[in-house]
Design a protein around this nucleic acid. Structure first.
Lengths: 151, 151
DNA sequence: CATTATCGTTCGAGAATCGAACGAGTGTCA
DNA sequence: TGACACTCGTTCGATTCTCGAACGATAATG
């Protein structure tokens, strides 16, 4: 029973509520990406790609952030690279490592994703109110301090 | 790029933050279940089982709540039934449907899951404060109004 | 320099998920 | 009542996702 079991008829737990919110954002972004022509992106690929930083990110770090193993990331990055979304460059600071960076197609997709995310955030802000949305963001950020093992 | 892309170095989006929180709860519950002897439960199985209500839940409803297809739920329920966690009874109100209900082993697992969830919530409350945790819960519940298509 | 740890990778297998289609039962409405 | 469209759970087949184990190359430690 991963997450809060709603087997009781009481209110949903925070974990389950977070699932709903997170999944909604995922679906929205993925839908908009598909509509914009990036219809070859899967959810698994998207989840990994979303963790790539502007200066590039190591496979190991991507795995930690996305909560999957390195093997999974390697596979996913291979797919993304083949589709022109990312490419790998040597890490200047470590000859063992390689940095996964956005390629042209990836940057274009990133732009769409950013816009969608902003739009969804706006929707949420309209529903909750600006002040309350900020509060929610603050609380989640504070909660991250003890829930994100890789901070 | 499912979820908020942190490619910018700014703060994480609400979607991504929710992922971290939700995943943490999932991991904790699953770990405690495994430690309590329910080590045959996978995350996918747990996610579906967590949606079973006290009076039983239809396959279609489980699919909607867990955000997977009916086929996936059928497969998962088949596994869970084989392991003694759930069983299927006819739905009195609809001869087409069947209700998935907890079996003995499922109830035992549910108890563990409930305890763990409560313990994690307590941890979070200690970190955020009682008042703030309630606020977080309220905000997420309110956000659910527009993010849960199957409410 | 020797040893230990980390990085990315390959291989192989298992798990998870979906699309399409179907029989059984329900709801609707002329 | 009867015809038609819809829903429910299910099966089959295929694809995707994910992991465990292991390895060479490089880094860090002493």
């Amino acid at each position: 029973m991963t997450d809060s079991p709603p087997a009781g008829d009481g209110p949903l737990g925070i974990g389950l509520l977070c699932f709903i919110v997170q999944r909604t954002m995922e679906d929205r972004v993925l839908a908009d990406l598909a509509a914009a022509g990036f219809d070859d992106l899967t959810m698994a690929q998207s989840r990994v790609m979303a963790r790539i930083g502007p200066q590039g990110t190591r496979v190991t770090d991507l795995a930690e952030q996305a909560r999957v193993t390195k093997q999974t990331v390697v596979t996913t990055i291979h797919q993304l690279a083949g589709a022109g979304y990312v490419r790998r460059i040597p890490d200047p600071s470590d000859a063992r490592a390689r940095l996964v960076v956005f390629d042209q197609r990836g940057l274009a997709a990133l732009e769409i994703a950013r816009k969608t995310e902003a739009a969804v955030h706006e929707e949420w802000t309209r529903h909750l109110g600006r002040r309350e949305t900020e509060r929610l963001h603050e609380l989640l950020t504070k909660l991250r301090e003890i829930t994100d093992p890789y901070r």
